[in-house]
Nucleic acid binder design. Structure first.
Lengths: 221, 221
DNA sequence: GTCTATAGGTGGATAGAC
DNA sequence: GTCTATCCACCTATAGAC
């Protein structure tokens, strides 16, 4: 315990390289040099570089789930969904390299399955589906298919985040965060139940946009 | 003219490798072998592999703009926006490798500028802004900031497309295309003007979702 | 001008000695 | 377990033949 196992040391150094300079910087040679062994020694613990990266991605998914779980402190379904969205953004901004490899890379070395039903990634998606289902059950959203709606919401936030992280959006982080929130409002407005419309509609007519009451406006930090 | 210039031959073979196996497959050795010259010969026409890839990306943007332009045949602003969305999807599905390198890759070798104001990419974004502005002017959408709204719409479709292309969505192409259309409906519903709501709202209450009349439902092909 | 030959650098990975 | 050889594939660059 006092002596960190070599395997952990490897993962540690790999992770540092990973978050600092991205997946491309995680070379067997580079990691080995930092650990203090020859490149070949790493192959005793990881059969290939792919597997090493896979372990890092798994670690990323676990961290990500930790962020999302903080949204469960909220008291209303809609607030939980909203805060989950905030936490999604927080994770992406605080761990951009991890986010990129988890969701933006092609041929991700995730677990073993090929589709979206893979282990780690599935858990985070399930989380979002549950949030949507809660809102639907509480009448906060009008949802025909919770999985599909969750997927649409996921795609929306991912689209924003991935474009921002790829440097395609000429916005400062602060501006982007505001845009992120406003656009989620707009999207959820499309799933708002007709019954709940009146209050929302009046407020909307007044401000021009950015509505959806205090419950949802709850901030994460 | 009868003899295709070597430079064109190079681009041609590079493009084939590119669309078939992605950017990683475009190696100087691989391209040179197919052209029938040595790897070094390529450096007479392209200073580096980066520049070669850049030329391919530029070509991709040009093709993309061609797809989008087809939406201008429509007669209403909303229909033009909707068909532009259809064409966006078509391009992504018909040129997945190009799409990936243009929008999903990090450190894209686009032109020279660093931000989103780069040459080729900017033109396609401008196109979308124009579509949104048209809708806003015609009262079809309630838009405070056309650039921001266009960006949100872009992020939305990009999110869907990029997740699908990355294999994160357990959907067949057909299912995905349907989902794509429905989700855009939902998003635009969030930007729908309160005045236009009545007709839309009644139809919506009847079907449960998938509204927004025949004008928008116009298909691309 | 265009290409070949060749050499240097980075990376991943296998085989087999210690 | 760890290491030394060693091989392979790739990009880049210089020298010099045609």
């Amino acid at each position: 315990m006092a002596e960190p196992p070599i395997r952990s040391r490897i993962l540690e150094e790999a992770r540092d390289l990973f978050v600092a300079q991205g997946a491309a910087a995680v070379t067997m040679r580079g990691v080995a040099a930092r650990v203090g062994v020859t490149p070949m020694a790493l192959y005793r613990y990881f059969p290939s570089r792919e597997e090493l990266l896979g372990a890092l991605v798994e670690q990323g998914h676990a961290t990500f789930l930790g962020y999302l779980n903080r949204s469960l402190r909220e008291t209303t379904p809609l607030a939980r969904l909203a805060v989950a969205g905030e936490q999604y953004l927080r994770f992406a901004l605080e761990h951009p390299q991890s986010y990129a490899v988890m969701f933006m890379e092609r041929d991700v070395p995730v677990g073993r399955a090929g589709a979206a039903d893979a282990g780690e990634g599935a858990a985070t998606f399930r989380f979002l589906v549950d949030r949507v289902r809660d809102c639907s059950a509480a009448g906060a959203l009008e949802v025909a298919d919770a999985e599909e709606t969750a997927l649409v919401v996921w795609a929306h936030v991912h689209g924003l985040v991935s474009l921002f992280l790829a440097g395609k959006l000429p916005l400062a982080e602060r501006e982007f965060a505001d845009l992120y929130r406003r656009s989620i409002d707009a999207l959820l407005r499309g799933f708002a139940p007709p019954a709940a419309a009146p209050a929302s509609a009046s407020a909307r007519r007044a401000t021009g946009r950015r509505v959806r009451g205090g419950t949802v406006a709850t901030r994460a930090r």
